[in-house]
Design a protein around this nucleic acid. Structure first.
Lengths: 136, 136
DNA sequence: ACTTTATTCAACCACGCAGTTGACTAAGGC
DNA sequence: GCCTTAGTCAACTGCGTGGTTGAATAAAGT
């Protein structure tokens, strides 16, 4: 359907699902247990769990007629890795910018060397349908 | 419309938008620059930027007829904080579980004390529409 | 003033999703 | 064997969203 990262983000975009994840971080639970606090039908919660499941955030085993839901915390790393990557990149850029501004401020009338425009290394998971791209 | 956390996650659930964020981490860009690589209309990209904007992930200023888009990296912290919280909670739980299992293994026929079911402290950002019905 | 460039607004469409209700399957308990 | 418990599947609905095209706005350029 879509890449896992998209599915994980989409799964967590829903407050009910985030709440479910929060509660699963405390203890594995059955569908009924999970559904109890919410004002929606059991089936709705079952659907939420399905979404969480095929995003990889939770797994389900079997215990008699119960299907205990278990949080797969390792998937979080997928997100944090993505987030941290671009957060850092952005932060580094500001540091570079600060340096440039400082330099500009230091010797204003001096030579203006361009600060080697860092080539945007493409993200494997990211770039979707790209096109011809006319040269700069 | 919804809480910011939901909006941020929803915004990043789309590969095109993630790609835009990735590229903005390298440099601020105009809408046209951002739209160029994708195989969709300019208006579609404009819409994506709107989504990113009211999730707080980007901001737009004005430079003549251009509206340069800028990545607000601080919003990432909102997500990482949420993620880390439950990730840690889950990890701690496994450590506790390990400890219990170890203890059980150590003295098998001893007294079986129930391991104080930790009360799920509710997350302020999480718990959506809770209910009364369906008593225990 | 007229045109071009950059971007948004508006109306529309297809699709997916969160929710519903009702029927179904699966596994015990009696 | 039959009822209860636990959960899913199926069909339907309303709404949000990503995409489209066409018109409108904003600020230069000439």
């Amino acid at each position: 359907m879509a890449d896992q990262l998209s599915k994980v983000f989409a799964a967590l975009a829903d407050p009910t699902r985030r709440d479910i994840v929060a509660r699963l971080s405390v203890a594995d639970s059955t569908v009924n247990e999970l559904a109890e606090p919410y004002d929606v039908s059991l089936q709705a919660v079952s659907k939420h769990l399905k979404v969480l499941e095929d995003s990889g955030l939770v797994s389900r085993t079997r215990d008699a007629q119960r299907r205990p839901v278990h949080l797969e915390d390792n998937v979080f790393d997928l997100m944090t890795k993505w987030i941290e990557r671009y957060k850092q990149q952005a932060e580094e850029r500001y540091q570079r910018l600060d340096a440039v501004l400082e330099a500009m401020n230091a010797d204003e009338e001096a030579n203006d060397s361009d600060p080697s425009a860092a080539s945007a290394k493409e993200s494997e998971a990211a770039s979707p349908h790209r096109r011809s791209r006319k040269g700069a």
